[in-house]
């Protein structure tokens, strides 16, 4: 991976044509630029980690990508499709799946029902009018439940699951969508060490088939899944590169007042 510095901006040469591109992506909240002029190129099948301090604009960046927040300026492109401001549902249909920091699932429904709603590719009302629902999981649902360790919990209500299991369930739902791009906001938050290891393994496993964009605080976790890292600082991209490069990047070190802080960033 090649990193070149152009006027303080670092750009990573993409491996293959980028699947996801942002151009000058900017959003201001009351004139405060939460995300400012972000140009991101994510290659097809890449596992990209976005790090940065609190308030650096990481989550806001994901919000812009999945349509939760509308940009003040700039564009988001999925391959050759401009998906800026087409709405959350349309963005999801075009192939972007989002997992939130605090698990958002359908609490009063069973794990299986959650997966059924997620995996259903017919989204229109009238396509669904005569669609019956199976009481049993189909092969795909079993596969995704197995992958996320939820196979024994298929008939349990989501509200009965532990916090870690809820994280897995939301991930399973995003996987059921079969998205091209998966956006994950701190997937390991609130997980035990063993669960974190499992999550890291799963993310590495997903990359390739999917393009994965992960926001993470925990540098230990980042090193575990260590691929390309994008560092955000005060709403802008500060640097991009491998974990090694990032940790020795003077601009990053300066922004974080020493690499010791970065480890806790």
């Amino acid at each position: 991976m090649l990193m070149t510095a152009i006027d303080g901006k670092q750009v990573v040469q993409p491996l293959s044509p980028p699947i996801l591109r942002t151009r000058n992506l900017t959003v201001r909240f009351d004139e405060f630029p939460a995300v400012h002029g972000v140009n991101l190129d994510v290659a097809d099948g890449e596992l990209r980690v976005v790090i940065g301090a609190n308030g650096a604009g990481k989550s806001t960046l994901l919000d812009l990508l999945c349509g939760k927040t509308l940009p003040s300026e700039g564009e988001v492109w999925l391959r050759d499709e401009n998906i800026t401001s087409i709405g959350e549902a349309a963005i999801a249909r075009s192939g972007i799946g989002r997992k939130f920091q605090t698990p958002t699932v359908f609490k009063e429904m069973t794990v299986l029902e959650n997966l059924q709603v997620a995996s259903n590719r017919r989204v229109r009302v009238f396509e669904n009018l005569f669609q019956r629902i199976s009481a049993r999981a189909n092969d795909k649902e079993v596969a995704v439940a197995e992958r996320t360790g939820l196979l024994d919990s298929l008939n349990r209500k989501a509200s009965e699951l532990s916090h870690g299991q809820l994280q897995w369930l939301e991930l399973a739902m995003v996987l059921s969508q079969e998205p091209k791009i998966i956006l994950l906001d701190e997937p390991a938050a609130g997980m035990t060490a063993a669960e974190t290891d499992k999550t890291a393994g799963l993310l590495l496993d997903l990359a390739g088939d999917h393009t994965v964009l992960v926001i993470e605080h925990d540098m230990a976790f980042v090193r575990q899944i260590c691929r390309t890292i994008t560092v955000m600082h005060q709403g802008s991209v500060l640097a991009e590169g491998t974990a090694e490069e990032i940790e020795h990047n003077p601009a990053v070190i300066e922004a974080y007042l020493g690499s010791a802080t970065l480890s806790h960033a």
């Binding site: 359908f106 429904m109 259903n120």
Partner: peptide, 13 residues
């Protein structure tokens, strides 16, 4: 059916 399931999901989140 499916419509009911999606409606329930909408009610939940």
């Amino acid at each position: 059916g499916r419509v009911g399931q999606v409606l329930k999901a909408i009610r939940e989140d």
